[in-house]
Structure formats: structure tokens, C-alpha cells
Write a protein that binds this DNA or RNA. Structure first.
Length: 825
RNA sequence: GCCCAGGUGGUGGAAUUGGUAGACACGCAAGAUUCAGGUUCUUGUGCUCGCAAGGGUGUGCUGGUUCGAGUCCAGUCCUGGGCACCA
């Protein structure tokens, strides 16, 4: 093969990447004349290098983007950087550098890598969340939320390393110890900022039932996370003093069986209710619980423990005097932080009662059975028949639930309520590399928002990184010291920064008008593009990121910035990239380096393999030999086109009426493939089967012989279509071949071809003949053949007769165009 | 424990509506080209019986529905994921 005929991916790819960049092929603006399509892949954290997960994610997205573009859509396909976060700070400590330097270097390198992939991004819209031009608007939003009461401060517990004097994220706590110094981690209570996502719990839940474009399992995970439960709040009057303990329960049908009360150790009444003689023991218990880290405390094998406060309350249904305990398994954040304990019908209460020898009263029994409290080995948690419950005796517990709730409301002893598992979103991070929370603390005025005119609060550059002594910001006097915007007296800045999930909760909105100077988003432009038509990313973000982004969308809607209820119409969650049976990771040593891959095979091969090896939502098993196979395929495509180049250049115009049988058959294969590829991409996102279909077509074309003038025309059409069909998957080689086939417009700018329906119609059908459901023969018949003729042919078939001779034909079933099944016996 | 996916050749996977199971690719085997290796090309390749024609068998397991089941139903086992003291 001569040198110019050789497939040289690296040369070709650089050439066309430059071409698309020069021509600004993928730059878009709002165009009311075209249908819009907003395609988005989750933006990467600039960790240093892209990994195979990115290659896969962005290859999938690029097929959709290029395909939709060829289909006439105005495609918005942006890319950016989720650039704040802890790794930058850790790297700074380790390398004695600055998080900004580290981050921007990584971005430059990774941008280059993405460009080498040939992805169809509108790079003019690129953004980095650590840029003040981005995070300044987030500060504005924070203040708008603050004004609406959607951002607020409250006491909350954090993991605290007393030796490093710093807050630790959950993943920095290893077996209860600090990851850096190995000292014991404590729980420390700090004032922290929260977003009131719970205000939107119901709407977030309701919409999960109106999102057909999302995978059901993601919706289920979000519903579980939101965790709505309906029940009652019931007041239990305190004995011998004013006041009451309010509980939340979903099992008000067991109220008559409540024999004691369990409070969270952090409950406000915990110490108040403790009698002097119990005080020492109770305090010791509270102390012990506080020292236990939250992960351990909520582990399933954690032993139930408690302590008696010395006080009693009254069961509002029975008048029974109930001892009040503190229990380590009661969570202060959920419900009211207090639980009415029904040991006969709740397993936790049962174990607790057995341990502390508390009374058991059965109030629900299985149909036709009498439970003996003394003999019970576990709580009975199923529905049943009510007993020992006064006027409700004999009723089914299911319906009594509603009646007891009504009765409590009438008596003024309780009311029906809804509770959510979802908690407000704590956004304070005692970190440097994040968006500063724009608040000033004044001794006279309290928390004061930074005035609009003083925004943004710019993250100062000149800080020291030691990893100790808390956030670097908190030690930077020049940052902290500020005059109160209200009274002018000396005040102090908030030194906490925001959780990086905040930035990723609205970046998709900023992409619509990334240059807008007047606010977070330019409403007109954002209204044109939103919602995101297709969002693609890893399943690991099923809950947090995707829920926060939904929350922010609703908040920004209510603040008047945007018009949509939901950010992402369709969601595709792609599977992981696996090698040797495990997720790629440095520790396992099974990492494939995208740079090396592209250098050796080119981006087209890397893209093709990650699309061909598995459907997008499944895990992908990386296999070097499979990559070789894809490279071979591209070489065969290259060779095929060049082999026929001179023949098709001189080809006559295609005349479909003048084709030989052989030519028609070849053309049928081409148009059938085009039909399948179109449908596989557009309707199913099954890129692996689309590619397989093109491979099959290539096998057919390789065997073709050019015998007549028209066969040159058929081959020319075949090669044009073959190249066009492959364009979304392997854009560089196809642009090159397209040009060599004599076309002058860029392939990216051509319309996706339409298949000729007439050419896909079979002239003969293959009918499968079964006897008693077993395949025995095949018949080739004319398309329009009638049922009786097919049946007769099937029965007369020699291979069929072998199995029907001497048998009685009981029934003959004909599925038109498919098969005949003869029932004999 | 609860919920959700999934289980198909030596491997990744295909079978879109209940109608030819294993497309396509990898691997393997034989052959051609080559001094040789690599590349490229041709042929074969679920298992099994058979020289062959052909037969039997086969989609985790056990049943069921149906003329016909990888696909539907019931049960069961295994794998992966999510949730889990949430009152």
C-alpha cells in the first residue's frame, strides 16, 4: 500500500479538529427557526487527566450531539469545569503550591485532551466554577435565597480533628480517626448555613411521577431519599409539671400499647427532665453518644442503649404513666426527636424494653390468634385486629389508623402530619477552595448580607496552606476584617465557603448565557435553551447532584430567573468502565491511559470501542483486543473507500429502474442498514448495534463486484452513505473520506441521509417452517404470497414430510411473512 | 430485612411486538500470502452424536401458560446496585 493510502489517524484527526475550530462549526446561538436541542454531559472535576469514564461519557454524548445536528437541530453542547473542591487544597498542601495554579494547569491539560477526542463542543461557552465570573452569581443567588428564608443558619455537628484543628468530610474519617494524623475524630457543634430543600420536598417528590425521560431506578432512589411518610404528631403531657413531649408516629394504631417514651440524647428536654439523682448517669450517657461518630451510630449492628431520666409522661389514650428514657437510636433530626415506644409492635422498642425490663402491652393481634406478651420473641409489626384499645377493639388495625388519627384531632391531642426523611442541605465548608459565603457578622447587627455593590466577595489569593489550624481563610486578617455594611462598625466576614455541589446545581443554566454580566442568567436566552433535552452522566450522582440541581431549578423558577420546573427532560446514566473485573483504579493497577490510547490508535478508535463494546447504560469491560478490532474495522473502511475511489468518481447517475438483481440486493442492504442505524441512534441509543450493522454492511460491500455502469453508481451511493452513517461515531476519518469522495462541504454540515423506503422492501421472504415448534425447513417465497399457498408449500416440503409422515396434521399456524408451524401427532 | 436491575457460547454482547437463539466483534483452529514474525485475506467455530447428510440438546434452576417461551406467569438460587435503627 502506498504511503498516501495508509490510514494515519493522528494526522487526520489534528487536521479536522483544526478545521472545526477555525470554522466554529459547533458554535451556536439562539435560532427560533430551528428546533433546539440542549445536550449536556456532566462536567468533570479537573483532577489532572481525563479517565476512561470521561472518554465513554463524552463519546456517548458526542454521538447524540452530532446526530441531532445532522438532523437539523440547533444543538447546544457545552463543556466546563467543576473546579472548586478539596483535592486542589490537598494537592496544594502536598506540593507547596496554590489550589488555583493546580486547578488551572489541570484544566489546560484536560481541555487539550478533550479537544483531541474531537468532541463537538461549543468551546465559546466554556466555564470554570472557580472563576469569579461564575461564582459571583452564586453569591447573588445565595443572598436572594437568604432574603426568602431559603438560606439560614443553625447549629449542626461536624467531624472535627482536634489535632489538625480542622473539619473533616465523612470520607476523611477512617475508622473514627483523622486520615492525616490518625487522631480520634470528635463531633463538634458549629453554626452552619443550610438551604431549605425541605420546603421543596413535596414538589421534588411529586415530579418524580411526571418524569418519563428518567430511568425508573433513579426516580426510585430519589423517592427513597426524600422519604415521605404520613402519620400523626401526638402530645404526651408531662407528669407533675407543665408541658408535653411531642412525638411523630406512623403507627398511631399502636398508641394504646405505648408504655414508655424514648428521646434523642440531643433532645432539648433531655436534661430538663432529668431528676437530680439521675443527673450524673444521664450526663455520662449523653457524653458517650456525642463522642460516637454518626456513621457508627447509625450502623445496623449498633447496640441499643438508653438511660432513664427519672421523669414520666402520660399516654393520652390510656392515661398510663410512661417513664421517659433517652435512647441512642433516636435521631434528633427526624420527626420531633422523640418516639412513643410500643415494644410489642416495634422491634427496636422490643429490644429496648427487654434490656431495661419495661412493660409490654399487646394491642394488635394476628387474625384468630392471641399474642402473649410474656412469650413474644420479637415484635409483631404486621397489621391485625385491635385489642386493649378501648372503643377501637375488634377493628382491623389498617382502618383504625385513620380513625385514631381523626379521634386525636377531635380531642385536640394530636394532628395528622407528613414527615420527610430529607434534611435541609448543609452547605458550609470550613475550606479555602470554594465560593465564599457573602455574609458579614456584626456584634450589633448580627448576620448582614454583603450589599450588591460590594459583590462579589473575591476569594483572596495570598493564603498559606499547612493543612492545620482550620480554614486558611479564617486566619487571613485582611479577609476577615470588614466594616459592617449596616452600622459601619468593625465586623467580621463569614470564612466558610460553599459546598461544591452548589456550583454544579446551576452550571447548566449558566451555559445558556455564559457571558451575561447582568445576573446569573439572561432570561430570554435561557428560556430558549432550557430544559436540557438530554443529560448524560454516571449513576453515582443519582441522588445528590441530580436532586440538588432539581431543587435549584425550582428555587430559581420561584425567584423569577427561569421558567422551567425541571432541569433535565431525559437522563441517561451510563455504566462504569471495568477492566479485569474491577473498576479502574490506581490501587488495582488496571488503569488505561486515554493519552496512550489516542496516541496509539487515534481518537476515532477510542470512541468507537467505547461505543461498540456495550450499550451505554451497562458497565463496559475494557479489552485491548477489542480496541484492536475497532482499529482494524476503521482500516478496512479506509481501504474499501480507496479501493473504489476511481470507480465511483467516474460513476454515472443512479437509475434505480436500471439495476440488476445483484445491484438491487446490494442497494437494499445499504438502505436497510441506514434505516437500522437511524433508528438505533434516534430511538434506542443502542450505538453498539448500530455500529454492528455498519460492520455487517462493510462485509457485504467488500464482496461486491462492479459489473455494469450502474454498479458504480450503486457503490458511490453506498460509500457516501456508509461514511455519513459512521460520522457521529468516528467524525475524523469520515470527514477525511467524505472529502476524498469528492464532497466539498464538511460532513458535519450535511444533513443526516434519509433511507429510500422502496429500496428496503424485500422481494422474497424467508419463511421458517416448524413442525411442533421445532425448526425443520425454510421456504423462500414471493412477497405477496397468500396464506393457503404458503401452507401448501410448507406441507409439501420434503424435509417437513420426514416429520409429518404417518402423523395426523392437527393444525397449521401461519404468521404472515415469518413462519409456518405445523402441529402434527 | 426492604426495593430495583441482571443471569444467554471460551469472552464482550445481539435477538426492538411471544415466532430461525448466539447478529457484530474478540479469542481460538486450519489454510493462503511472507525467508520468518507481524500484518492482511479465506474458511470454520454453542455443546453433543455422526465420515457426511443429518439428529439430539441448549438462554441460572423448578414448574406453568401457549401451536410456539431467552422473551409472559409462579416459585427458587445466584450476582450487582440502592435504602436501612427514619419511629
Amino acid at each position: 500500500m502506498s504511503a498516501e493510502l495508509k490510514y494515519t489517524p493522528n494526522e487526520i484527526e489534528a487536521k479536522w479538529q483544526q478545521f472545526w475550530a477555525d470554522k466554529k462549526t459547533f458554535t451556536v446561538t439562539e435560532d427560533p427557526a430551528k428546533p433546539k436541542y440542549y445536550l449536556l454531559e456532566m462536567f468533570p472535576y479537573p483532577s489532572g487527566r481525563i479517565h476512561m469514564g470521561h472518554v465513554r461519557n463524552y463519546s456517548i454524548g458526542d454521538v447524540v450531539g452530532r446526530f441531532k445536528r445532522m438532523r437539523g437541530f440547533n444543538v447546544l453542547h457545552p463543556m466546563g469545569w467543576d473546579a472548586f473542591g478539596m483535592p486542589a487544597e490537598n494537592a496544594a498542601i502536598k506540593n507547596n503550591s496554590h489550589p488555583a495554579a493546580w486547578t488551572y494547569e489541570n484544566i489546560a491539560y484536560m481541555r487539550d485532551q478533550l479537544k483531541q477526542m474531537g468532541l463537538s463542543y461549543d468551546w465559546d461557552r466554556e466555564l470554570a466554577t472557580c472563576d469569579v465570573s461564575y461564582y459571583r452569581w452564586e453569591q447573588k443567588l445565595f443572598l436572594e435565597m437568604y432574603q426568602k428564608g431559603l438560606a439560614y443558619k443553625k447549629q449542626s455537628f461536624v467531624n472535627w480533628c482536634p489535632s489538625c484543628e480542622t473539619v473533616l468530610a465523612n470520607e476523611q474519617v477512617e475508622d473514627g480517626a483523622c486520615w492525616r494524623c490518625d487522631n480520634e475524630v470528635q463531633q463538634k457543634e458549629l453554626e452552619q448555613w443550610f438551604f431549605r430543600i425541605t420546603d421543596y420536598a413535596q414538589e421534588l417528590l411529586d415530579f418524580t411521577h411526571k418524569m418519563p425521560g428518567w430511568p425508573e431506578r433513579v426516580l426510585v432512589m430519589q423517592r427513597n431519599w426524600i422519604g415521605r411518610s404520613t402519620g400523626c404528631e401526638i402530645d404526651f403531657a408531662l407528669e407533675g409539671r407543665e408541658g408535653a413531649i411531642r412525638v411523630f408516629t406512623t403507627r398511631q394504631d399502636t398508641l394504646f400499647g405505648a408504655t414508655f417514651m424514648s428521646l434523642a440524647p440531643e433532645h432539648p428536654l433531655a436534661l430538663e427532665l432529668t431528676t437530680p439523682e439521675r443527673r450524673a448517669e444521664v450526663e455520662a450517657f449523653i457524653d458517650k453518644v456525642k463522642k460516637t461518630d454518626r456513621i457508627k451510630r447509625t450502623a445496623d449492628d449498633f447496640e441499643k442503649e438508653g438511660v432513664f431520666t427519672g421523669s414520666y409522661c402520660v399516654n393520652p389514650a390510656t392515661g398510663r404513666s410512661m417513664p421517659v428514657f433517652l435512647a441512642n437510636f433516636v435521631l434528633v433530626e427526624y420527626g420531633t426527636g422523640a418516639v412513643m415506644a410500643v415494644p410489642t409492635h416495634d422491634q427496636r422498642d422490643f429490644e429496648f424494653a427487654k434490656k431495661y425490663d419495661l412493660p409490654l402491652v399487646v394491642v394488635i393481634q394476628p387474625q384468630g390468634e392471641a399474642l402473649d406478651p410474656a412469650a413474644m420473641a420479637a415484635a409483631y409489626t404486621e397489621p391485625g385486629v385491635m385489642v386493649n384499645s378501648g372503643r377501637f377493639d375488634g377493628k382491623p388495625s389498617d382502618s383504625a389508623k385513620e380513625e385514631i388519627a381523626d379521634w386525636l384531632e377531635q380531642e385536640g391531642k394530636g394532628k395528622k402530619t407528613v414527615n420527610f426523611r430529607l434534611r435541609d442541605w448543609g452547605v458550609s465548608r470550613q475550606r479555602y477552595w470554594g465560593n465564599p459565603i457573602p455574609i458579614i457578622y456584626c456584634d450589633c447587627c448580627g448576620a448582614v448580607p454583603v450589599p450588591d455593590t460590594d459583590l462579589p466577595v473575591v476569594l483572596p489569593h495570598d493564603v498559606a496552606f499547612t493543612g492545620e489550624g482550620g480554614s486558611p481563610l479564617a486566619r487571613l486578617e485582611s479577609f476577615i476584617t470588614v466594616d459592617c455594611p449596616q452600622c459601619g462598625k468593625p465586623a467580621r466576614r463569614e470564612t466558610d465557603t460553599m459546598d461544591t455541589f452548589v456550583e454544579s446545581s446551576w452550571y447548566f443554566l449558566r451555559y445558556c448565557s455564559p457571558d451575561f454580566e447582568g445576573g446569573m442568567v439572561d432570561k430570554a436566552r435561557t428560556d430558549y435553551w432550557m430544559s436540557v433535552d438530554q443529560y448524560i452522566g454516571g449513576i453515582e450522582h443519582a441522588v445528590l447532584h441530580l436532586l440538588y440541581a432539581r431543587f435549584f431549578t425550582k428555587v430559581m423558577r420561584d425567584l423569577g430567573h427561569i421558567s422551567v420546573d425541571e432541569p433535565f427532560t431525559n437522563l441517561l446514566t451510563q455504566g462504569m468502565v471495568i477492566k479485569d473485573g474491577a473498576k479502574m483504579s490506581k490501587s488495582k493497577g488496571n488503569v488505561v491511559d486515554p493519552d496512550a490510547l489516542i496516541k496509539k490508535y487515534g481518537a476515532d478508535t477510542a470512541r468507537l470501542f467505547s461505543l461498540f463494546a456495550a450499550p451505554p447504560e451497562k458497565d463496559l469491560d475494557w479489552n485491548e483486543q477489542g480496541v484492536d478490532g475497532c482499529y482494524r474495522f476503521l482500516n478496512r473502511v479506509w481501504k474499501l473507500v480507496h479501493e473504489y475511489l476511481s470507480a465511483v468518481q467516474g460513476a454515472v447517475a443512479l437509475d434505480v429502474r436500471a439495476l440488476t438483481d445483484e445491484e438491487r440486493t446490494l442497494r437494499r442492504a445499504v438502505h436497510k442498514t441506514l434505516k437500522k442505524v437511524t433508528e438505533d441512534i434516534d430511538e434506542r441509543f443502542h450505538f453498539n448495534t448500530a455500529i454492528a450493522a455498519v460492520m455487517e454492511l462493510l462485509n457485504v460491500l467488500q464482496g461486491a463486484r462492479l459489473a455494469s455502469p450502474q454498479s458504480g453508481a450503486v457503490m458511490k451511493e453506498a460509500l457516501d452513505l456508509l461514511v455519513q452513517m459512521l460520522a457521529p461515531f468516528v467524525p475524523h476519518i469520515t470527514e477525511e473520506l467524505w472529502q476524498q469522495l469528492g464532497h466539498t462541504t464538511s460532513l458535519a454540515d450535511t444533513a443526516w441521509p434519509a433511507y429510500d423506503p422502496a429500496a428496503t422492501v424485500d422481494e422474497e421472504l424467508l419463511i421458517v417452517v416448524q413442525v411442533n415448534g421445532k425448526l425443520r425447513s425454510r421456504l423462500s417465497v414471493a412477497v405477496g404470497i397468500d396464506e393457503e399457498t404458503v401452507k401448501a408449500q410448507a406441507l409439501a416440503d420434503d424435509k417437513v414430510k420426514v416429520f409429518t409422515d404417518g402423523q395426523q396434521i392437527r393444525k397449521v399456524i401461519y404468521v404472515p411473512g415469518k413462519l409456518v408451524n405445523i402441529v402434527a401427532g
